[in-house]
Design a protein around this nucleic acid. Structure first.
Lengths: 211, 211
DNA sequence: ACAAAAATCGACACCGCGTCGATAGTGTAG
DNA sequence: CTACACTATCGACGCGGTGTCGATTTTTGT
């Protein structure tokens, strides 16, 4: 929670930690209530009143912490986005590197499954919220660009085929990944592995022409 | 427009055609107003009042023809779905048949571009409307099943590779197709052709391992 | 011309959103 | 320790869109 008071104290570097303020706790409570609600009910059916109630405050108080319902969702999504950015081992490799590709996919698949509720809510909310749409778009673009770079390197090296432009291939990868992950809501570890296998194979074929 | 009067007259096979009733015309007017509005404004911003106004009736009268806004959109989508079902030349072919695949993709790409407004509205509305979600799901499943059958035949014949299950390949095809088509809103014929080329190549690689 | 069915609309209640202003709590500088 | 600024809470209000009801008018077939 950012307040004007803090700005006044910016210069005073070493000041007694007072622990999280009451407001910080409330904010966390809202986030937690939202995580719970978003994972067990369709996004549209959740009202700001539900969020506030879940955090133990009145509806109007909610607005003190977040301007909209989607702002809460965006905050939740930001965490997921950060975690996602951590598992990009394949992008730094050279050539097909099927093992690393599989590893990277496995990590993101797990992340997706564990946050399925939030992610599917985000998919719903993007229809209504330009804010969220832009946020997700940025994350996605950043991912696609790293993928495109990797592919471009391999195309230059002659390992990847060149009939399709690198950035188009990157988009296709995102498309099949997202489509498959969307079905991963309550999936078992076996189903997870199947998805990863299929995607590893498919991406290898798309980019290198052979698995 | 189906009325109780018609049901009473079912047996009377040869009866004077009276032409479309007033109600039929209104219904058509609503559909037309909807098509216009859906193609020029974001779905969420369009109100039932807009639809009614566009058709020259009051908001309450709208409910005489359609129960909800999404029902109108579903009706519009049904037409597009029918047109789509017509262009499945590749599904009946044997082996890669890149020419027919390209032909089929070109037809659907054109259809998509010409109905971009409606289709992107549908994408938005699926978040809120289970009815529309189910409708689109059925169309999509039917398409995927035909694709899967075609692939299964080619797998049996040995032309298609078998590392990925046929229905999974079909899903992937739908995913990359939809993702690419979504960018086709105001596209030129050249851009259309590029998209078709990329998709032909990608699908060939996914299913047969080589272009 | 007449009755039945089709079609229209105003009035009403509902729900969720967002704002405003009044008020109670909290920490900190003088 | 007190006074002041900032933090936090909430009730009351108005808005806009939805959907229903019942009364009324228009169309339609015979």
């Amino acid at each position: 929670m950012i307040t004007w008071g803090m700005i006044g104290n910016m210069s005073q570097v070493t000041r007694r930690r007072t622990g999280p303020s009451k407001g910080d706790l409330r904010e966390a409570a809202i986030l937690e209530a939202a995580r719970a609600l978003f994972t067990e009910r369709p996004y549209e059916s959740i009202t700001i009143d539900d969020l506030a109630g879940g955090a133990g405050i009145s509806r109007t108080s909610f607005y003190f912490y977040f301007p909209t319902k989607t702002a809460v969702l965006t905050a939740l999504m930001a965490r997921v986005g950060d975690e996602l950015a951590a598992s990009h081992v394949w992008f730094d490799a050279e050539g097909p590197a099927a093992g690393l590709l599989r590893e990277q996919l496995a990590a993101s698949a797990r992340l997706w499954r564990d946050n399925a509720g939030i992610l599917s809510c985000a998919a719903s909310a993007m229809a209504t919220s330009p804010e969220l749409r832009e946020f997700v778009g940025r994350v996605r673009t950043r991912y696609d660009e790293r993928a495109a770079e990797k592919i471009r390197r391999d195309q230059a090296a002659g390992t990847a085929t060149t009939a399709i432009a690198a950035h188009r291939l990157a988009e296709m990868i995102s498309a099949i990944r997202d489509a498959r992950y969307e079905q991963l809501a309550g999936a078992s570890d076996d189903e997870l592995r199947e998805a990863v296998d299929d995607l590893t194979e498919a991406i290898s074929r798309l980019v290198y022409g052979r698995a």
